[in-house]
């Protein structure tokens, strides 16, 4: 390289490097411009939510205000908190997200390991069923599931303990928690898939070493394999947490009106806001501006816990993405 370039006239080479430098800088500028556009476009709804939630309803139709309102107010938040019964719904959803997330992490890891490392008859068909559980819309299953929880008998167990033929679990949190204990919670099929990919990526020698040292498959799994897939555990917990938080359809039917989940509360906020009489202490009238700002405050309040969890876990997520691969 150096030998060739020394033969060339000095002037020409300078021009060439300069051209290349300019091209490089231009490329960077275009790159960051594209990044900025994409980021703006994805952050837009969050910015909009935040901007609307802190502005006075009177500021909505002011065309001179783009993002920063002239009159700040926190009334939107306090009204949204009240009419969503936010803290109660927050408690319900937080309990569900943490408990289901915890159970999903373990139950799906066990199933994923079984699919990744063992051979047994019918394995492929069973794994196809795992995929099917993600494909089937919950609408197909909601009625049978509802009657299952409404008249839960557990094969006679309920009669044994309560003396009644069946017990009613609708309105409790069990219809969401029990399935996730058995690796059938919200989108559990996906977590089983993620775990399977991770376990398949670990070297077999790891287990062989443990077997030689006399550990059985269960001990090997819990003390060798699980600690080696920390990123998968964090990823699955994050997914399970946010998707249980965002789950709407099943929780609306199963939890009843006493245990409204946060998404049910948010979906009914518009109606609740327009029905003034139904609310304690919130006087809105049917002012559409007030409803819009309060709706956005409600959205922000609903999204905030997820954003917080995401900020703390996103570096694990990015790391685990680099290692999932497809095999």
């Amino acid at each position: 390289m150096t030998a060739i370039s020394q033969k060339r006239p000095k002037q020409k080479m300078d021009a060439k490097t300069r051209r290349r430098k300019i091209g490089h800088v231009l490329g960077r500028i275009i790159f960051y411009l594209v990044c900025a556009c994409l980021a703006y476009q994805l952050l837009y709804p969050v910015l909009y939510m935040s901007s609307m939630a802190i502005r006075d309803p009177g500021d909505i139709n002011d065309p001179s205000i783009v993002w920063i309102p002239k009159h700040f107010t926190l009334d939107n938040f306090s009204d949204a908190l009240k009419s969503m019964s936010y803290w109660k719904a927050f408690g319900v959803s937080m309990t569900l997200s943490i408990v289901c997330g915890f159970f999903d992490v373990f139950s799906c890891a066990i199933a994923g390991y079984g699919f990744a490392r063992f051979k047994f008859p019918g394995k492929n068909i069973l794994f196809l069923i795992v995929v099917f559980t993600i494909v089937v819309p919950s609408q197909t299953l909601i009625l049978p599931l509802y009657s299952r929880w409404r008249y839960a008998s557990f094969g006679g167990l309920a009669q044994l303990f309560t003396g009644k033929e069946s017990i009613n679990l609708i309105g409790t949190l069990w219809p969401m928690i029990l399935p996730s204990m058995l690796a059938m919670g919200v989108r559990s099929g996906l977590y089983i898939f993620i775990y399977r990919q991770f376990f398949m990526g670990l070297p077999v020698a790891l287990e062989d070493a443990a077997y030689i040292d006399g550990a059985g498959p269960y001990r090997t799994f819990f003390s060798i394999m699980l600690p080696n897939v920390k990123n998968a555990i964090i990823t699955v917990f994050l997914f399970s947490f946010v998707w249980n938080w965002g789950e709407y359809y099943l929780s609306k039917q199963f939890l009843g009106s006493d245990n409204r989940s946060i998404m049910t509360a948010l979906s009914m906020l518009r109606m609740d806001l327009s029905q003034v009489s139904a609310l304690a202490g919130v006087q809105l009238g049917t002012n559409p501006e007030k409803i819009v700002t309060r709706m956005q405050a409600g959205c922000l309040l609903t999204a905030a816990p997820m954003l917080l969890v995401f900020i703390f876990t996103q570096r694990f997520l990015a790391d685990s993405i680099e290692h999932i691969g497809i095999k």
């Binding site: 699919f115 047994f120 008859p121 069923i129 049978p144």
Partner: peptide, 28 residues
């Protein structure tokens, strides 16, 4: 033996799948 061990690993999922997926599917 390995086969049975493997089977025990997916057993919780299988029970869940029969209770909360296959029978509701049939019912539907």
């Amino acid at each position: 033996k390995r086969k049975w061990y493997g089977f025990t690993f997916i057993l919780p999922w299988l029970i869940g799948c029969i209770l909360f997926f296959l029978t509701p599917m049939y019912q539907s």
